[in-house]
Design a protein around this nucleic acid. Structure first.
Length: 958
RNA sequence: GCCCGAAUGGCGGAAUUGGUAGACGCGACGGACUCAAAAUCCGUUGGCAGCGAUGUCGUGGGGGUUCGAGUCCCUCUUCGGGCACCA
């Protein structure tokens, strides 16, 4: 406890300031002292079931922040916004009798440490550990009440061993779409052994239809591998030669570049590990209804999953059948041609030797004219078109609305009306969606209309547009026409009818498809989790037995993946260079044999898919999480509050939900969803300045003069953007803490505005938060002597009323994370306190008000509150961390009389004072009796009087 | 193009279910303290008219519902975010 004045040189306080004023130095001294104390007393530890001190009677709350990457640049004040909010909420919950799990770990694998290693030769582990230490210190300085013993890092062997273990669980599982789901519904993951048993018993047909018993070893393996939830596939992947790695679809921008680094990305087939997330598409979409998440986030996930209901339709094409997917099977009669994607596997088989007579353009694309002129055969024409389509970037594909394509020379039969329709390839049909083939209905689809116009193909309307319709393709409601049995039916009924019809004639069936693709799970990187997989001499994959985990990363002196400008360069992951590590002799149950390790590593998302489960039981060496701990902390609907930025709306949240659902199906976890309630905090923006060349200058050095901004003598332009290094506008929390203390920073960040909103940082405004805390301190502590200004007793009724109304309002705000208004109400109450019994009044502060104020401030400014609590309440009452949060006494909060506005014709004309419980009649009488009101309505007939008791009176005159 | 979200004083932002618009903070202005400045404290502060009581306008623009609209409906504008030839 300070007994000496705390005004060292450099303090913002003047030399003659009172010795016990709450300034930067005192704040810093208080904060350091209590941080040490909380740490040594393990103030935030929450025992697990079975640990001493565990109390099952108390409700649990699992509060979670999104997993941070420990960046070398350190934190800026924008980062901890969400952390401060969860800390305040967690502290509030502790004070209201909850057991709170609140921990912070580090998503520490990833590219920056690896790139730094490439540049400097420093091992990524060294960089990572240093960055974690820095970040831990920064977080500690903010007074965040995380449970230190639960802090984990994905790079810890004790952690990634379980990441590998979960990978194996997924590898050893398959999705049985027909099985009864755990907790109702259809579909669940099951152990792969059960699939094998089904094959062996002949209960399940193999994909080829040949009996299991007749299959050889490799065929059986292929059959089983084709069902696994983690599987190897030769699939078109996003290859980024510059980064020397493949990327997930989600990591590629719309214009075909890498999200990280903005390098060109090429589609190219490669053998890679995949996760069968598409098996869960339906449940991932449907279960969004069972979580309390912001609606926009749920929308984004729904859009990403992209569920669409429609039908498969099979078209005969000489001896083959082409299956298309459509959401408008009702328009089948209007299908005047088919389009396959250029990559469609049937294209080669369909093409005849030469074109027959055709009444439409055979091909439209750059260079097509020459081929048409010399009457090139379909094979050449389509080949040239495919080359063209491949060379076009996704960006170019979208640019310009002109449709390109080529006629295959083949014709298909429309199953609805027997019409002979041409088959095209065109890149407006995507290979990855549906069946990679469409039936084109120009009358009801604008894209098909455009193509039909360009190629001179017929257009048949099958839905009657309204009389005043003068557009091209008509996509609205209307009766079916030109459609035989469907004629006259509205769209929805026609869809039902045609679905049944197709099924009856064996030419298709209703179905559902998704935009969601399987998740590419391999990366050609060093700093990631190694796969627990080896390959035998014939290239067959073998999982590493659980007992041999973890598979550790080898030491390397060169961490660089081979980067190239050549899109065809082979991938050379850094681990492939660790030949001593990659070549192993193992006994996997068939005697000691030679194997080669998988040299790819897992993507960065792997660790963040399950870290929250590890928080619940981080010291468990026998399981990734103990059953009892999992059931306790995840009980109810999983994590009780998950706070993070919108940037994870799709990727992390979708992958984590997927893993969680697999683990749920396999009975490793008890809830179908991981995160019951999600909250997105906004960004902190900051002014950034560009000079005359348009280059960003250090925002800290900019001066404002007469409304314009100057840097180093030259004028600069102001803009606002996300705080960070690139805009040179980052403000470090350490600086703010040094000048004001972290309690001030916490209060300021919370008072800036609603948590979910993005708002601009304004260093000038911090003083307001600091003054508030200073005034609280000044009300309770004599600035000259350091003695408390608190006297026993409850205080006057007016003060008590203000207090209890504040308690009720602040509690409401805490529950809804409305910390900005909570702060405002506390300031308001403290201002009231200052007026009635501040230092200038000479009156002491009543104990009830003093203690309640300190306790209400405790979650927001815990250090100041702890210090005041120890001085005002005394050491015997313990720490403020678990002190009971004040409770509003309704009888004390109630007003005796209220001032009610009186309106005439909806316009405010006066106010009357009435007892708070005055009923409508009394209120009306009081309003009409008011002199001013009476004068205003004199001579006018009163048509109606609207009275809302306690709220207002509105007199409607004629 | 489609889907979300937002727009309130000089600034950040408040306003239960439609019921006193502008809480709280910053800034600005005036005052106290000081030789002075800083810090701190007290007061004023949406626009316009008025000495004043007060009146009047006012929540991005236009229209509507209602006794009453920042809040509900229609429409437009601007800004932010997501998706983007997904059949």
């Amino acid at each position: 406890m300070p007994t000496e004045p705390h005004n060292p040189p450099g303090n913002t306080l003047p030399d003659d300031a009172p010795p016990f004023r709450y300034g930067a130095a005192l704040a810093n001294e208080i904060e350091a002292r209590w941080q040490d104390r909380w740490e040594s007393e393990r103030a935030y530890d929450a025992p697990n079931p079975g640990e001493s001190g565990f109390d099952a009677a108390r409700p649990k709350k699992f509060i979670l922040d999104m997993f941070p990457y420990p960046s070398g640049a350190g934190l800026h004040v924008g980062h901890p916004l969400g952390y401060i909010a969860t800390d305040i909420y967690a502290r509030y919950l502790r004070m209201t009798g909850h057991r709170v799990l609140h921990a912070m770990g580090f998503d520490a694998f990833g590219l920056p440490a690896e790139q730094y290693a490439v540049q400097t030769g420093t091992h990524p582990r060294v960089t990572t550990e240093r960055n974690i230490a820095t970040m831990r210190a920064q977080l500690r300085r903010l007074g965040l009440g995380h449970e230190a013993r639960r802090s984990v890092a994905t790079t810890d062997e004790g952690f990634y061993r379980w990441t590998q273990w979960i990978f194996l669980r997924i590898y050893h599982a398959w999705y049985d779409a027909g099985a009864e789901g755990r907790g109702g519904g259809r579909g669940r993951a099951r152990p792969i052994a059960e699939l094998v048993a089904q094959f062996e018993a002949g209960e399940r047909a193999t994909s080829s239809g040949r009996p299991w018993a007749k299959l050889n070893e490799d065929q059986r393996r292929a059959e089983v591998d084709g069902h696994r939830l983690a599987f190897l596939a030769e699939a078109p992947v996003n290859w980024c030669p510059k980064l020397g790695t493949v990327l997930a679809n989600e990591e590629v921008t719309a214009d075909g570049r890498s999200e990280r680094g903005n390098y060109p990305v090429f589609k190219r087939p490669m053998k890679q590990w995949m996760m069968r997330i598409t098996a869960y598409a339906e449940r991932l979409a449907a279960d969004l209804d069972r979580v309390d998440w912001p609606e926009p986030i749920r929308q984004m996930q729904r859009n990403w999953i992209g569920r669409s209901a429609g039908a498969f339709v099979d078209f005969d094409c000489s001896t083959r059948r082409i299956r298309v997917f459509t959401t408008r099977p009702d328009t089948l009669s209007g299908a005047t041609y088919l389009v396959l994607s250029p990559e469609h596997e049937m294209v080669d088989q369909l093409m005849p030797e030469r074109y027959g007579a055709a009444g439409f353009a055979r091909a439209i694309f750059p260079g097509a004219e020459g081929l048409v002129a010399r009457n090139a055969p379909p094979r050449d024409m389509v080949g040239a078109y495919r080359a063209h389509a491949k060379s076009r970037s996704d960006e170019a594909r979208r640019e310009g609305d002109e449709k390109t394509g080529a006629f295959t020379g083949a014709y298909a039969i429309n199953p609805m009306n027997g019409a002979r329709i041409p088959v095209f390839v065109a890149d407006y049909v995507l290979s990855g969606y549906g069946t990679g083939a469409i039936m084109a209905v120009p009358g009801q689809d604008q894209r098909d209309w455009d193509f039909a116009k360009a190629f001179g193909l017929p257009i048949v309307r099958t839905v009657q547009p309204p009389a005043d319709f003068n557009g091209e393709a008509y996509v609205g409601e209307g009766p079916a026409i030109n459609s035989g049995i469907l004629d006259g039916l509205p769209v929805e009924e026609a869809k039902q009818r045609i679905g049944a019809h197709l099924r009856a004639i064996g030419r298709g069936e209703p179905t559902v498809t998704y935009k969601l693709r399987d998740w590419l799970f391999s990366r050609q990187r060093y700093w990631g989790e190694p796969f627990p997989v080896v390959y035998d001499e014939s290239g067959r994959a073998h999982p590493i037995p659980e007992g041999m985990l973890p598979v550790r990363l080898p030491e390397l002196d060169n961490f660089q993946p081979e980067s190239s400008d050549d899109p065809d360069a082979p991938p050379r992951p850094p681990l492939a260079r660790a030949s001593d590590w990659a070549r192993v002799e193992l006994d996997l149950g068939e005697g000691t044999k030679r194997y080669t390790r998988e040299t790819n590593t897992m993507p960065n998302w792997a660790g963040s898919c399950w870290y929250y489960l590890r928080y619940a039981d981080p010291w468990n060496e026998r399981a990734f999480v103990g059953r009892e701990a999992e059931r306790y902390w995840m009980g109810g609907n999983g994590v009780d509050l998950y706070v993070g930025g919108v940037e994870h709306a799709v990727l992390h949240l979708l992958y984590a939900r997927f893993w969680h659902k697999v683990l749920y199906d396999l009975e490793e976890v008890s809830t179908p969803e991981p995160f019951g309630r999600l909250f997105n905090q906004g960004y902190i923006q900051a002014a950034a300045y560009t000079d005359e060349r348009g280059v960003y200058v250090e925002a800290a050095g900019v001066e404002e003069r007469g409304g314009s901004f100057w840097f180093g003598g030259g004028p600069v332009r102001r803009e606002f953007g996300k705080m960070g290094k690139s805009l040179k506008n980052a403000v470090a929390p350490d600086e703010v803490c040094a000048s004001y203390g972290c309690d001030t920073l916490r209060v300021y960040e919370m008072s800036m505005g609603p948590l979910e909103a993005s708002k601009p940082w304004n260093t000038r405004d911090i003083a307001g938060a600091h003054r508030f805390l200073q005034r609280v301190w000044r009300n309770l502590i004599d600035e000259r002597t350091g003695a408390t200004r608190v006297a026993d007793g409850p205080g006057e009724p007016d003060l008590r009323r203000a207090l209890h109304k504040t308690i009720a309002a602040v509690r409401r705000d805490m529950e809804t994370l409305g910390f900005n208004t909570a702060v405002a109400k506390l300031i308001e109450f403290n201002n009231e306190l200052t007026k009635r019994c501040g230092p200038d009044s000479g009156a002491p502060v009543p104990r009830e008000a003093a203690e309640a104020l300190v306790l209400m401030i405790a979650p927001l400014a815990p250090h100041l509150a702890e210090e005041l609590w120890s001085r005002v309440a005394g050491a015997s009452r313990g720490s403020v961390v678990r002190a009971p949060y004040p409770v509003c006494d309704e009888s004390l909060a109630r007003e005796t009389s209220v001032e009610v506005p009186v309106q005439i014709l909806g316009r405010l004309r006066g106010k009357v004072s009435v007892p708070a419980d005055a009923d409508a009649r009394a209120l009306e009488a009081a309003a009409l009796a008011d002199e001013k009101i009476a004068a205003l309505i004199a001579g006018k007939p009163v048509k109606k009087v609207i009275v809302v008791p306690g709220k207002m009176v509105n007199i409607v005159t004629g």
